[in-house]
Design a protein around this nucleic acid. Structure first.
Length: 142
DNA sequence: TAGGCCATCTGGTCCT
DNA sequence: AGGACCAGATGGCCTA
């Protein structure tokens, strides 16, 4: 766990307004502030847990380096859009041929996904990253 | 050493 | 009144 900041401890607010109150009110304010800080820490930990869970299901580049929160959100959005596009195009294709295609979705599993999208190293344009594939007969080629 | 990322504190706002 | 959520500020850690 990261050490607490020395200038912003759980001792709470140090405003002159609080200081001017009675010791009882001051103590009460301190307790409420400490409780609020604890709740906020817990809330942020929950948020970080959610980010970790998202990182596990999202394709990742440079496996040794963890995606930042921003990168994780961008990648998740891009991943969802790519999957959605596959589904949409598959529907169109099936309608045109009047038959169902038995798709192998292994190709869009996270382990393989890095080969499907172009990653913009600037981190600015995940959404517009290209995702190329085409149908040949009943076969989906990536 | 500068810049990126992060954890934490804090005060404000909204809701129950 | 108190909890949840949010955004700004701040300082620590890490890497190029």
């Amino acid at each position: 766990m990261k050490p607490r900041r020395t200038s912003c401890t759980d001792s709470g607010s140090e405003s002159s307004e609080v200081d001017s109150q009675s010791p009882e009110k001051y103590e009460s304010a301190m307790r409420r502030r400490m409780a609020a800080n604890a709740r906020e820490r817990k809330r942020m930990q929950g948020l970080n847990t959610a980010f970790d869970r998202l990182r596990k299901v999202v394709p990742q580049w440079g496996q040794d380096k963890k995606l930042s929160k921003y990168e994780t959100l961008q990648m998740a959005l891009s991943y969802i859009m790519a999957l959605n596009r596959i589904l949409t195009d598959t529907k169109k294709h099936n309608a045109a041929h009047g038959q169902w295609v038995d798709l192998q979705f292994d190709c869009v599993q996270p382990d393989n996904y890095q080969y499907l999208m172009r990653y913009d190293s600037t981190g600015q344009d995940y959404i517009n990253s290209s995702f190329s594939y085409q149908f040949e007969g009943d076969q989906l080629n990536i």
